[in-house]
Design a protein around this nucleic acid. Structure first.
Lengths: 212, 212
DNA sequence: ATTAAAAGCGAGCAATCGCTCACATTATAG
DNA sequence: CTATAATGTGAGCGATTGCTCGCTTTTAAT
């Protein structure tokens, strides 16, 4: 059996020209996802918008899924960069203030590219290699867990593992749902009310021992 | 301009035979969604599995979307029926016990048909007439809000509206994520720990005044 | 028995999709 | 300059999709 010479191999971009092509493709995919939706993001259309040929597209991305995954990954990393930075700042602050900052940054992270965030959350079928796109929190659990460990003495919970899950999941859900489905909730003083309550929810849980 | 005689009109099933056809179609759609995924759920395949012809399918459902929407709606109503029933039982119980029961029922509701629930949550592109599928909580906010109103004196929150949002969103996210992405968390005593913590999270928020 | 409406059928059309491949162009090395 | 690799091209294939329409069968009413 003979290996086909050089047909399939999806290459890694090495020269500068090809790097630009790859960037254009990812960027075009993101733009189409936002402006036309997932259905309309066909490989032909992506290539057209990117200003390259379909052939070139398939030199760097083995499938349409791979392109969407690249867009999703880029977005996830932007969010992680923001969260990581903010978490470093509040590392030494007490729980009360730290959590409040994190709630604020959670909202902020949903505003990096809200339209893309929405499409990624609502229109992408999590299947095949898109299965692990899941939530954008993968690494956030560990980050927050580490933060909690450094404040162990302030806390009143049995398991930091479980606590991190409860806090991150709740904050993510509250901010995600608010931004996507309750836009009014983030206008004017209502936004403050949400941040207040979300903070109280989480801090009360982390510090309150009186119950059980 | 002449109206086409009887071509498009997607009819409401009136005779008994056609009712069976409609049921078979919805059931087939659900089965395919679960066993083969959204992509494979083509109208031709749905009709084949249902044991009817594509023509019959289009007599009752104007599009593939409509079929998926019907499946989603059926699932949503099953959940609502469960929640509504349980909420009636705890209506007169104190917050502490009521919330605990509701957390339990939230988990239970995710187990009505977990595989279908997962497909509906992860693979269905929320677009067109599927846009309002959203979460399965639409009516739950109001239900829970009513419950809170009847226990106003036990609570320590500014806005019941906001409180209902915070509680329902958190409980839904915690149970949803646990069932779908943390199956181990619901085995043995870990399940109790999650229920304990989720309850403490919500109750502490609803009753705790000491903070701010 | 006659008739008309209701329900069911399925071959097949038009459109689209993801993707390939034979070829052209551009860059790099000797 | 020449050779070779890297990069880019786009017509178009094969498969699939959502859906239509002319037709048959079943049911209910007269």
């Amino acid at each position: 059996m003979v290996r086909r010479p050089l047909t399939n191999p999806r290459k890694e971009a090495s020269q500068e020209r090809s790097r630009a092509t790859v960037d254009a493709l990812v960027e075009a995919t993101a733009r189409i996802l936002v402006s036309e939706g997932f259905d309309k993001a066909s490989t032909n259309r992506i290539a057209e918008v990117a200003g390259v040929s379909v052939g070139s597209l398939y030199q760097y991305f083995p499938s349409k899924e791979a392109l969407v995954a690249a867009v999703s990954e880029r977005h996830r990393q932007e969010i992680m960069r923001l969260v990581r930075g903010e978490l470093a700042k509040v590392a030494s602050q007490p729980i009360e203030q730290g959590v409040r900052t994190l709630v604020a940054v959670a909202i902020k992270s949903h505003r990096i590219d809200p339209k893309l965030h929405r499409v990624l959350a609502e229109q992408i079928p999590r299947v095949g290699r898109l299965e692990k796109v899941e939530t954008f929190n993968g690494g956030n659990y560990d980050l927050f867990r580490t933060y909690l460990e450094e404040h162990r003495d302030e806390l009143c919970v049995d398991s930091l593992e479980l606590a991190a899950f409860v806090c991150v999941t709740s904050i993510e859900a509250l901010t995600h749902t608010a931004v996507l489905h309750r836009p009014k909730m983030l206008c004017g003083e209502t936004a403050e009310a949400l941040i207040d309550d979300a903070t109280r929810l989480v801090v009360g849980y982390l510090k309150g021992c009186e119950l059980r």
